[in-house]
C-alpha cells in the first residue's frame, strides 16, 4: 500500500465510521440504561486518552514529564483556569523538566 492509498483509505474510513454514528437508528439506543451507557462513553474514552497519552510510550507504561504536565493541568482546572491556560501550563511544566534533563 503506497502513501497516497494509505492516506486516502484512512481518511475515507474515518468519515465512514463517523457517519455510522448518525445513521444507526436512535431507537436502538433509547433504553434508559443503554442511553446512560452511551452518555458515559465520552467520559470513558477521554479518560482513557488522558491515561494513554500521559503514561504510555510505544505500548509501555512510563512516568515522564507528561505526568507532571497532567498534574499541573488538573491543578489549574481545580483553580478554574481557562482551557488555553491549562494546556499552556502543562506544556511549560513538561518543557521545563525536559530542559533540566528530566523525563
Amino acid at each position: 500500500m503506497n502513501g497516497w492509498t494509505t492516506v486516502i483509505l484512512a481518511g475515507v474510513l474515518s468519515l465512514a465510521v463517523k457517519l455510522a454514528g448518525y445513521v444507526v437508528p436512535h431507537r436502538w439506543f433509547s433504553h434508559p440504561r443503554l442511553a446512560r451507557a452511551t452518555g458515559l462513553m465520552p467520559v470513558a474514552l477521554l479518560s482513557a486518552l488522558v491515561a494513554v497519552q500521559a503514561f504510555t510510550s510505544a505500548g509501555r507504561l512510563v512516568i515522564d514529564a507528561r505526568a507532571a504536565g497532567v498534574a499541573v493541568a488538573f491543578a489549574a482546572l481545580a483553580l478554574r483556569a481557562p482551557f488555553l491556560v491549562v494546556i499552556t501550563l502543562a506544556a511549560v511544566a513538561a518543557a521545563l523538566l525536559r530542559a533540566r534533563g528530566i523525563g
Binding site: 465520552p42 467520559v43 477521554l46 479518560s47 486518552l49 488522558v50 497519552q53 500521559a54 514529564a65 507528561r66 507532571a68 504536565g69 497532567v70 499541573v72 493541568a73 488538573f74 482546572l77 482551557f83 491549562v86 494546556i87 499552556t88 501550563l89 502543562a90 506544556a91 511549560v92 511544566a93 513538561a94 518543557a95 521545563l96 525536559r98 530542559a99
Partner: peptide, 22 residues
C-alpha cells in the same frame, strides 16, 4: 515537539475536556 512539551499539552487538552463531565 517534546522539547516544547506539546505532547503534555495534548494530554492536558483531554484533561480539560473531560473535567466538566466529572
Amino acid at each position: 515537539p517534546r522539547r516544547f512539551g506539546l505532547d503534555a499539552a495534548a494530554a492536558a487538552a483531554f484533561c480539560a475536556l473531560v473535567w466538566p463531565r466529572l
